[in-house]
């Protein structure tokens, strides 16, 4: 393996990609965020934007598994009685017409165990891959993600998932603050607004890569295939 041709620097900063120290983190590829009848669909956003990264992510997933990299999936969702849902989050969701816990075509919105909470089949976890359930946007808050990465000896994270500006950014920022070396795959992510997606990519890259680096998945695959 080699380093990845990324922007604004060749990733990772400390040498070739080491699959033993690197995890692929797949954020919230749930029906609620990219499937018909889910939370994002109910709010009226264009699903094409959040589904755009599914195909390239499936290719990266296969490569990561073949390389023996740890693959971690995350899911956002609340307990059925919504006791872990902050009241302002609940209020805002109801105000925009997609109330958390309300019945929808995919079951109760953003509730654990409902069809809308499941990860879509294109990038579904396989046996043995950890799934981190989170009540918020950041996957490090109120979860065991940091601990399971440490136990696995992981120091480098490659991100795919949705949405770029919210759950992916929050998680990548938390990871960067904790000292993980982060790469975001630009074609393996999407937002509810295309302009916000572009701004979110830019925010990672500013000031010399303040939150890590950004690359197309083809660059990662090329680095992984290199002898």
């Amino acid at each position: 393996m080699k380093q990845v041709e990324a922007d604004p620097y060749t990733w990772p900063y400390d040498g070739p990609v080491d699959p033993a120290k690197t995890a692929l983190v797949c954020i919230d590829w749930q029906v609620d965020f990219c499937g018909p009848g889910g939370y994002v669909d109910t709010m009226g956003y264009d699903l094409k934007l959040t589904r755009a990264g599914l195909e390239p992510t499936a290719v990266v997933l296969a490569a990561a598994r073949a390389a023996g990299m740890l693959v971690v999936h995350t899911r956002e969702g609340h307990l059925p009685d919504l006791s872990d849902c902050p009241p302002n989050k609940l209020w805002r969701s109801k105000r925009i017409g997609a109330g958390i816990g309300d019945a929808g075509p995919c079951g109760r919105i953003l509730v654990k165990g409902e069809p809308g909470w499941e990860i879509v089949p294109e990038v579904a976890p396989i046996e043995g891959e950890p799934i981190v359930d989170k009540p918020g946007k950041g996957a490090f808050y109120a979860t065991n993600l940091d601990l399971l990465l440490r136990v696995a000896g992981v120091t480098h994270l490659i991100f795919t998932g949705i949405t770029t500006d919210v759950c992916v950014h929050t998680t990548m920022r938390e990871a960067n603050d904790k000292g993980y070396e982060c790469l975001l795959l630009e074609d393996c992510t999407g937002a509810t607004d295309y302009g916000n997606y572009l701004a979110a990519l830019q925010m990672v890259k500013m000031q010399g890569g303040v939150f890590g680096a950004v690359a197309p998945s083809s660059a990662l695959l090329a680095a992984m295939e290199a002898a």
């Binding site: 994002v40 997609a98 946007k137 500006d165 919210v166 937002a191 701004a199 830019q202 925010m203 500013m206």
Partner: peptide, 16 residues
Amino acid sequence: AVATGALSSITMSGGI
């Protein structure tokens, strides 16, 4: 220009 995107992101989905 990037900041405009960040502010827009805050207000999406009813004020995420």
